[in-house]
Amino acid sequence: MNYIDLPLEEWTNNFVNGWLLPVMSGFFDSISTALSSFIDGVTNLITSIPPEIIAVVLILLAWKLAGRGIALFTLIGCLYIGSVDLWAETMQTVAIVIVSTIISVIFGVPVGIASAKSSLIDKIVRPILDFMQTLPIFVYLIPSILLFGLGGVPAVIATFVFAAPPAVRMTRLGILQVPEEVVEASKAFGTTSKQLLFKVQLPLAIPTIMAGINQTIMLALSMAVVASMIGAPGLGSVVLSGISTVNVGLGLTGGLAIVVIAIILDRITQGVGNKL
Protein backbone atom coordinates (compact mmCIF):
# COMPACT_ATOMS: atom_id res chain seq x y z
CA MET A 1 0.00 0.00 0.00
CA ASN A 2 3.03 2.26 0.10
CA TYR A 3 2.34 4.26 -3.05
CA ILE A 4 3.62 7.59 -1.85
CA ASP A 5 6.17 8.10 0.85
CA LEU A 6 4.52 10.21 3.53
CA PRO A 7 7.15 11.70 5.87
CA LEU A 8 4.60 12.78 8.51
CA GLU A 9 7.03 11.96 11.28
CA GLU A 10 9.75 14.17 9.85
CA TRP A 11 7.35 17.02 9.12
CA THR A 12 5.94 16.97 12.63
CA ASN A 13 9.35 16.96 14.23
CA ASN A 14 10.52 19.79 12.00
CA PHE A 15 7.37 21.73 12.85
CA VAL A 16 7.70 21.19 16.60
CA ASN A 17 11.46 21.71 16.84
CA GLY A 18 11.87 24.31 14.13
CA TRP A 19 8.87 26.54 14.76
CA LEU A 20 6.60 25.62 17.64
CA LEU A 21 9.23 25.47 20.36
CA PRO A 22 11.53 28.38 19.42
CA VAL A 23 8.94 30.79 17.99
CA MET A 24 5.90 30.11 20.15
CA SER A 25 7.62 29.41 23.43
CA GLY A 26 6.83 32.89 24.75
CA PHE A 27 3.14 32.33 24.05
CA PHE A 28 3.15 28.95 25.75
CA ASP A 29 5.09 30.31 28.65
CA SER A 30 2.45 32.92 29.34
CA ILE A 31 -0.32 30.30 29.15
CA SER A 32 1.73 28.15 31.47
CA THR A 33 2.19 30.97 33.97
CA ALA A 34 -1.50 31.87 33.97
CA LEU A 35 -2.64 28.27 34.31
CA SER A 36 -0.17 27.42 36.98
CA SER A 37 -1.22 30.38 39.12
CA PHE A 38 -4.85 29.35 38.60
CA ILE A 39 -4.08 25.81 39.73
CA ASP A 40 -2.03 27.06 42.69
CA GLY A 41 -4.80 29.45 43.68
CA VAL A 42 -7.41 26.73 43.73
CA THR A 43 -5.09 24.27 45.48
CA ASN A 44 -4.16 26.84 48.14
CA LEU A 45 -7.79 27.75 48.65
CA ILE A 46 -9.06 24.24 49.23
CA THR A 47 -6.06 23.10 51.26
CA SER A 48 -6.32 26.16 53.50
CA ILE A 49 -9.86 25.26 54.47
CA PRO A 50 -9.91 22.78 57.39
CA PRO A 51 -10.76 19.28 56.13
CA GLU A 52 -13.66 19.05 58.60
CA ILE A 53 -15.41 22.04 57.02
CA ILE A 54 -15.01 20.67 53.49
CA ALA A 55 -16.27 17.29 54.67
CA VAL A 56 -19.34 18.84 56.32
CA VAL A 57 -20.11 20.95 53.23
CA LEU A 58 -19.79 17.87 51.00
CA ILE A 59 -22.02 15.83 53.29
CA LEU A 60 -24.68 18.53 53.37
CA LEU A 61 -24.55 18.94 49.59
CA ALA A 62 -24.81 15.19 49.15
CA TRP A 63 -27.76 15.09 51.53
CA LYS A 64 -29.56 17.96 49.79
CA LEU A 65 -28.87 16.82 46.23
CA ALA A 66 -28.50 13.07 46.35
CA GLY A 67 -30.23 11.80 49.47
CA ARG A 68 -29.35 10.37 52.83
CA GLY A 69 -27.52 7.28 51.59
CA ILE A 70 -25.02 9.28 49.60
CA ALA A 71 -24.57 11.67 52.54
CA LEU A 72 -23.65 8.70 54.70
CA PHE A 73 -21.29 7.43 52.02
CA THR A 74 -19.67 10.88 51.85
CA LEU A 75 -19.15 10.87 55.60
CA ILE A 76 -17.49 7.44 55.52
CA GLY A 77 -15.48 8.37 52.43
CA CYS A 78 -14.13 11.56 54.00
CA LEU A 79 -13.25 9.66 57.19
CA TYR A 80 -11.43 7.06 55.08
CA ILE A 81 -9.37 9.66 53.21
CA GLY A 82 -8.46 11.31 56.48
CA SER A 83 -7.62 7.97 58.13
CA VAL A 84 -5.19 6.88 55.39
CA ASP A 85 -3.64 10.33 55.61
CA LEU A 86 -4.32 11.30 51.98
CA TRP A 87 -6.35 14.49 52.49
CA ALA A 88 -3.71 16.84 51.08
CA GLU A 89 -3.17 14.64 48.00
CA THR A 90 -6.91 14.37 47.50
CA MET A 91 -7.27 18.14 47.54
CA GLN A 92 -4.45 18.48 44.99
CA THR A 93 -6.25 16.07 42.68
CA VAL A 94 -9.56 17.83 43.24
CA ALA A 95 -7.91 21.17 42.41
CA ILE A 96 -6.71 19.82 39.05
CA VAL A 97 -10.17 18.37 38.38
CA ILE A 98 -11.80 21.70 39.25
CA VAL A 99 -9.46 23.70 37.03
CA SER A 100 -9.74 21.34 34.06
CA THR A 101 -13.50 21.18 34.45
CA ILE A 102 -13.81 24.96 34.56
CA ILE A 103 -11.67 25.30 31.42
CA SER A 104 -13.62 22.51 29.72
CA VAL A 105 -16.91 24.26 30.48
CA ILE A 106 -15.62 27.68 29.43
CA PHE A 107 -14.61 26.23 26.06
CA GLY A 108 -17.10 23.40 25.79
CA VAL A 109 -20.42 25.11 26.39
CA PRO A 110 -19.98 27.95 23.87
CA VAL A 111 -18.59 25.56 21.26
CA GLY A 112 -21.53 23.25 21.94
CA ILE A 113 -23.96 26.14 21.49
CA ALA A 114 -22.23 27.19 18.27
CA SER A 115 -22.34 23.69 16.84
CA ALA A 116 -26.02 23.37 17.75
CA LYS A 117 -26.77 26.60 15.89
CA SER A 118 -24.64 25.99 12.82
CA SER A 119 -24.29 22.69 11.03
CA LEU A 120 -21.11 23.96 9.40
CA ILE A 121 -19.46 24.52 12.79
CA ASP A 122 -20.76 21.12 13.87
CA LYS A 123 -19.13 19.53 10.83
CA ILE A 124 -15.80 21.11 11.77
CA VAL A 125 -16.04 20.47 15.51
CA ARG A 126 -17.15 16.87 15.43
CA PRO A 127 -13.95 15.30 13.98
CA ILE A 128 -11.86 17.44 16.32
CA LEU A 129 -13.79 16.00 19.27
CA ASP A 130 -13.34 12.47 17.93
CA PHE A 131 -9.65 13.22 17.61
CA MET A 132 -9.45 14.54 21.19
CA GLN A 133 -11.22 11.51 22.63
CA THR A 134 -9.49 8.73 20.72
CA LEU A 135 -5.94 9.91 20.15
CA PRO A 136 -3.82 7.89 22.61
CA ILE A 137 -3.13 10.11 25.61
CA PHE A 138 0.63 9.71 25.48
CA VAL A 139 0.74 11.14 21.95
CA TYR A 140 -0.17 14.58 23.23
CA LEU A 141 1.14 14.10 26.76
CA ILE A 142 4.76 14.24 25.62
CA PRO A 143 4.42 17.37 23.43
CA SER A 144 2.56 19.10 26.22
CA ILE A 145 5.60 18.49 28.48
CA LEU A 146 7.76 20.04 25.77
CA LEU A 147 5.51 23.08 25.63
CA PHE A 148 4.55 23.54 29.26
CA GLY A 149 7.18 21.72 31.25
CA LEU A 150 6.42 19.22 33.99
CA GLY A 151 3.79 19.67 36.70
CA GLY A 152 0.15 20.57 37.00
CA VAL A 153 -0.12 22.67 33.83
CA PRO A 154 0.46 19.92 31.22
CA ALA A 155 -1.72 17.71 33.38
CA VAL A 156 -4.58 20.19 33.13
CA ILE A 157 -4.05 20.59 29.38
CA ALA A 158 -4.03 16.84 28.82
CA THR A 159 -7.07 16.43 31.06
CA PHE A 160 -8.86 19.18 29.16
CA VAL A 161 -8.19 17.48 25.81
CA PHE A 162 -9.61 14.23 27.13
CA ALA A 163 -12.47 15.55 29.25
CA ALA A 164 -13.87 18.53 27.32
CA PRO A 165 -15.66 16.65 24.48
CA PRO A 166 -18.65 15.50 26.59
CA ALA A 167 -19.29 19.12 27.62
CA VAL A 168 -19.40 20.14 23.94
CA ARG A 169 -21.46 17.19 22.78
CA MET A 170 -24.00 17.33 25.61
CA THR A 171 -24.45 21.09 25.26
CA ARG A 172 -25.20 20.66 21.58
CA LEU A 173 -27.53 17.77 22.29
CA GLY A 174 -29.31 19.68 25.05
CA ILE A 175 -30.04 22.62 22.78
CA LEU A 176 -31.15 20.45 19.87
CA GLN A 177 -33.43 18.53 22.23
CA VAL A 178 -35.54 21.57 23.00
CA PRO A 179 -38.86 20.72 21.30
CA GLU A 180 -39.25 22.29 17.86
CA GLU A 181 -42.66 23.71 18.79
CA VAL A 182 -41.24 25.51 21.81
CA VAL A 183 -38.56 27.13 19.65
CA GLU A 184 -41.10 27.98 16.96
CA ALA A 185 -43.49 29.43 19.50
CA SER A 186 -40.77 31.58 21.00
CA LYS A 187 -39.77 32.86 17.58
CA ALA A 188 -43.39 33.45 16.63
CA PHE A 189 -43.78 35.75 19.62
CA GLY A 190 -40.80 37.77 18.49
CA THR A 191 -37.77 36.63 20.45
CA THR A 192 -34.40 37.84 19.23
CA SER A 193 -31.88 35.05 18.75
CA LYS A 194 -30.20 36.09 22.01
CA GLN A 195 -33.51 35.91 23.92
CA LEU A 196 -34.25 32.55 22.33
CA LEU A 197 -30.90 31.21 23.53
CA PHE A 198 -30.88 32.61 27.04
CA LYS A 199 -34.56 32.54 27.94
CA VAL A 200 -35.58 29.32 26.22
CA GLN A 201 -32.89 27.04 24.83
CA LEU A 202 -30.23 27.22 27.55
CA PRO A 203 -32.61 26.90 30.53
CA LEU A 204 -34.20 23.87 28.90
CA ALA A 205 -30.82 22.39 28.00
CA ILE A 206 -29.33 22.75 31.48
CA PRO A 207 -30.11 19.22 32.74
CA THR A 208 -28.39 17.77 29.66
CA ILE A 209 -25.49 20.22 29.93
CA MET A 210 -25.10 19.23 33.58
CA ALA A 211 -24.95 15.58 32.54
CA GLY A 212 -22.12 16.57 30.18
CA ILE A 213 -20.30 18.43 32.94
CA ASN A 214 -20.71 15.41 35.18
CA GLN A 215 -19.04 13.28 32.50
CA THR A 216 -16.27 15.85 32.17
CA ILE A 217 -15.59 15.61 35.91
CA MET A 218 -15.53 11.83 35.81
CA LEU A 219 -13.13 11.77 32.87
CA ALA A 220 -10.93 14.36 34.56
CA LEU A 221 -10.70 12.17 37.65
CA SER A 222 -9.88 9.15 35.54
CA MET A 223 -6.91 11.10 34.21
CA ALA A 224 -5.45 11.56 37.70
CA VAL A 225 -2.90 8.70 37.46
CA VAL A 226 -1.85 9.63 33.92
CA ALA A 227 -1.52 13.27 34.96
CA SER A 228 0.80 12.33 37.78
CA MET A 229 3.12 10.66 35.24
CA ILE A 230 3.93 14.14 33.98
CA GLY A 231 4.48 15.48 37.43
CA ALA A 232 1.09 16.52 38.65
CA PRO A 233 0.85 16.16 42.41
CA GLY A 234 -2.04 14.35 44.08
CA LEU A 235 -3.62 10.93 44.45
CA GLY A 236 -2.26 9.85 41.08
CA SER A 237 1.30 10.13 42.28
CA VAL A 238 0.42 8.02 45.34
CA VAL A 239 -0.90 5.28 43.07
CA LEU A 240 2.05 5.69 40.73
CA SER A 241 4.61 5.30 43.48
CA GLY A 242 2.66 2.29 44.75
CA ILE A 243 2.92 0.72 41.28
CA SER A 244 6.56 1.56 40.70
CA THR A 245 7.67 0.13 44.06
CA VAL A 246 5.35 -2.85 43.73
CA ASN A 247 3.64 -1.66 46.90
CA VAL A 248 0.18 -3.10 46.28
CA GLY A 249 -1.20 -1.72 49.54
CA LEU A 250 -0.18 1.83 48.75
CA GLY A 251 -1.61 1.53 45.23
CA LEU A 252 -4.95 0.31 46.59
CA THR A 253 -5.08 2.97 49.28
CA GLY A 254 -4.62 5.79 46.72
CA GLY A 255 -6.85 4.08 44.14
CA LEU A 256 -9.72 3.74 46.62
CA ALA A 257 -9.46 7.43 47.47
CA ILE A 258 -9.89 8.28 43.77
CA VAL A 259 -12.97 6.05 43.59
CA VAL A 260 -14.45 7.64 46.73
CA ILE A 261 -13.97 11.17 45.36
CA ALA A 262 -15.37 10.09 41.98
CA ILE A 263 -18.55 8.71 43.50
CA ILE A 264 -19.11 11.76 45.72
CA LEU A 265 -18.57 14.24 42.87
CA ASP A 266 -20.66 12.17 40.46
CA ARG A 267 -23.68 11.91 42.75
CA ILE A 268 -23.53 15.57 43.77
CA THR A 269 -23.27 16.90 40.20
CA GLN A 270 -25.95 14.49 39.02
CA GLY A 271 -28.13 15.80 41.81
CA VAL A 272 -27.57 19.37 40.59
CA GLY A 273 -28.65 18.31 37.09
CA ASN A 274 -31.80 16.63 38.37
CA LYS A 275 -32.79 19.48 40.64
CA LEU A 276 -32.68 22.04 37.80
Partner: peptide, 21 residues
Protein backbone atom coordinates in the same frame (compact mmCIF):
# COMPACT_ATOMS: atom_id res chain seq x y z
CA UNK B 1 -39.86 41.25 11.38
CA UNK B 2 -39.47 40.77 15.14
CA UNK B 3 -41.54 43.90 15.82
CA UNK B 4 -44.27 42.68 13.45
CA UNK B 5 -44.38 39.31 15.16
CA UNK B 6 -44.62 40.99 18.56
CA UNK B 7 -47.27 43.56 17.72
CA UNK B 8 -49.35 42.00 14.96
CA UNK B 9 -49.14 38.22 14.87
CA UNK B 10 -50.18 35.95 17.71
CA UNK B 11 -49.83 32.23 17.16
CA UNK B 12 -51.31 29.09 18.69
CA UNK B 13 -49.70 25.70 18.06
CA UNK B 14 -51.00 22.17 17.70
CA UNK B 15 -48.67 20.83 20.39
CA UNK B 16 -49.11 24.02 22.44
CA UNK B 17 -45.39 24.96 22.42
CA UNK B 18 -45.51 26.13 26.02
CA UNK B 19 -42.28 26.77 27.90
CA UNK B 20 -42.03 23.82 30.29
CA UNK B 21 -39.68 25.64 32.67
Amino acid sequence: LIETRRKKLGMVFQKFGLLPH
